[in-house]
Amino acid sequence: MDRRGFLKVVGAGAAVIAIKPSLIRQDLRAEDGQLYRSYEKVQLVGKDNKPIKASDLKTETNYVFNYPYVGTSCILLNLKENVQKGVKLKSEDGTEYIFKGGVGKNGNIVAYNAICPHQLTHVNKADSFISYIPKTKKTMAYKEGGIIVCGSHLSAYDVHNGGAVLAGPAPQPLPSIVLEYADDDTIWAVGVLGSDKFHDYFKSFRSEFKEQFGGKRKAKKLTKISAPTMLLTEYTQEVITY
């Protein structure tokens, strides 16, 4: 192939991807383990639309961003204690996958999709029954804090171990959001690891989507370029914990 031919092939490929990025979106990192799905790569930004810096995140504090869809909220955490690497997890149908750990200078920053796999309790703008309970706080769901608790039926998830179920009726771990950490201390979301409940979720809360996002179709749009990230207490009117 001559130089002109080569440039034509590269140019055509770039044009196709520019028109339909989903052609390269899925399973780019499938070799990292099963149940990984890549989505749009988006940067986590603050209210001012400036990239948030990992080192500015308060420890043990619930932050929220919506990913991979406009209507699916995730909890971002900067944990005090070390996050485990290479954690073997199993989804409801028995599929195994590996949680690779957190990001940031100390590898303590993690994010989880905040839709409980039990009965789809989720973070939303009106109220949030699912959130991270700091280490020092008590919860009815488990013997100690430092975990995510779904207040609806008291499922407890281990945020240091890929969202593994510690207690309660949850049938599988919380899906984790795969993050990338850049040299300039910024954070990017690139995919979802684990079995998600997005399909059931989008079928179940039509009234809420209408109220909070202007409809199901709008809630189901992919988050692109950047994801506004804020404190859970700013995002939701009421945080309910048990």
């Binding site: 109220d127 029954f129 609806s152 009234s207 809420e208 009421e238 309910i240 048990y242």
Partner: peptide, 20 residues
């Protein structure tokens, strides 16, 4: 009785699904 917030949420959802 402590779970009354959960009860309120359930009533809201029950009303929405009944409407649907």
């Amino acid at each position: 009785a402590y779970a009354y917030k959960f009860g309120e949420k359930s009533l809201k959802r029950i009303t929405e699904y009944s409407d649907e």
